[in-house]
Structure formats: structure tokens, C-alpha cells
Amino acid sequence: MPRVYQYDVFISYQRSSSDISAWVRNHFHRRLSESLDNNLYRDVRIFFDDQMRAGTNWPSELRSALQRARVLVPVCSPKYFKDEWCLAEWHSMAKREELAGRTSPGGPRQLIYPVIYCDSWNFPDFAHERRMRDLQQWNFPYEHFQTAPAYLEFHQEIGRIAKELEELIELAPEWRADWPVLTPAADPPVPARIPRF
């Protein structure tokens, strides 16, 4: 494994939600990638699990990508905070902030940059303690949203987000091989069905 960061941003989202997955794939990931890439002097790498090849060991790939990402961008919804994988990604980066001394107010920048996809009233207290970017007014997952007048506002908002993320990326702590990565316990195997003759 390389002894450096591989990704600038790790996008964390509730994968079982088809609307959120489509929105991240069709709009958020693309615009964020373009905006960051245009602003930074080097090529930007964003981890979005839609890019994983078939046959990949999914938990292992996620674990490796998270450990080698500078900043976590969670796409927050109420179910995000009920999903074991999402919580593992959030708490892994929160632990890194703690180890790197990034938890004191007014101190160095934090490593979690949450955006709100929907309904922030039902988020847990630890999420409400963070400043979040509200993207609810642009949470249309459909591709044809790109032709709507509101898409220009969305594009501009992503530009502002990219500007703030640039600073977090550049000020990320030096990579360490012992960055903690939490993963949920594996699901038990599904019992085989007995064929009926």
C-alpha cells in the first residue's frame, strides 16, 4: 500500500437509497470533481464507490480508500445516521481528527465536511455540532435537473464548497499508516435454501 494519501475526498453516502445514489452520481460527484480540479494545481482524486470494479472486495476497498483520503464529505440524510457503514466512515474520520489534534474550536481545520441532502431535524447531536452545507433545495436525482434554471445555482454552490474543501485538503495532516478505520461486523451468511423435489 502506498505510504501517502491516494484520495483528496471520500464521498460517504447511504448507498441503499436510490435517490441519494443517483444524485451523488449524476450531479454532486461530477460537479465537485470538476470544481476542485479546476481550482487546484494538481489532479484531484475523489473516491466515490460507484467507480469500483466488479468483483472488488468491497469492504476492503472502502477501508483502504477511507484510510488514504484526506477529507470525508458525508451526504447526510436521517437514514445516513442509521447505516452501519456510513457511521463507521464518519466515526473513523472523527477519530483521525482527535488523533491529529483537530477537535478544539478555533484550532486546525476539521476533516469532516458534511452536506445535507434532506431533513436535518432528525440528525444525531454529534452531527448538529458541525457546520453543514445545506443542499436540500438542489436534491433532484434526475439527470434532466442539469437543464433546469436551478442547476446554475447548484453549480455555483458546489464552487463555494470546493473553495472551502481546497483549504481542508491542503491543511490535512501528514498521512499515517495507523489512521483508524472502523468497519461494521460482517453480516452472517444467508442459509442455503433446501431444494424442493
Rank of each mutant, 00 (worst) to 15 (best):
M1N: 07
F47Q: 01
V4A: 14
S77W: 00
R196K: 13
F10G: 06
G159V: 08
R130F: 09
F154K: 09
A88P: 03
R131P: 03
M93E: 11
P188T: 03
F28A: 04
V24P: 05
G107T: 01
S12D: 03
P173A: 08
W90S: 03
P188N: 08
L36F: 07
A177R: 09
V9L: 13
K79I: 11
S120Q: 15
R96A: 07
F28M: 06
L111P: 03
V44M: 01
A185I: 14
E84I: 01
E157F: 06
K79W: 05
E157W: 02
W85H: 08
R15E: 05
Y41L: 15
T56M: 09
P195V: 12
E129H: 13
A177M: 11
F197S: 05
L87S: 07
R102A: 08
D43W: 07
S64Y: 08
V73T: 00
E143F: 07
M132N: 04
F154H: 02
A69L: 00
Q146V: 14
I20G: 04
E129I: 08
L182A: 10
E84H: 07
I116V: 15
Y7Q: 08
I116E: 00
E34T: 13
Y13P: 00
Y41D: 14
V4M: 14
R68V: 03
A94M: 13
P124M: 12
A94C: 10
Q137F: 00
S77Y: 05
R68I: 02
Y13K: 05
G55K: 03
W179V: 02
P74D: 02
I116L: 06
W121I: 13
V9S: 09
L72K: 01
P2F: 07
T183I: 11
F81V: 06
P2M: 14
K82T: 12
R42H: 15
S18Y: 11
H91I: 00
L171E: 15
S35Q: 15
A186M: 07
Q67Y: 01
P59K: 00
L171P: 00
Y13C: 01
P114S: 06
A127L: 02
A69V: 01
A22C: 11
L40M: 15
L168D: 02
C86R: 05
L171V: 12
P180D: 04
F154E: 04
R63P: 00
I11K: 06
S120K: 10
F140K: 10
L32R: 09
R42C: 09
R196S: 08
N139T: 01
L62W: 03
K79V: 09
Y151I: 02
A177N: 13
R96D: 03
W175F: 15
R196W: 04
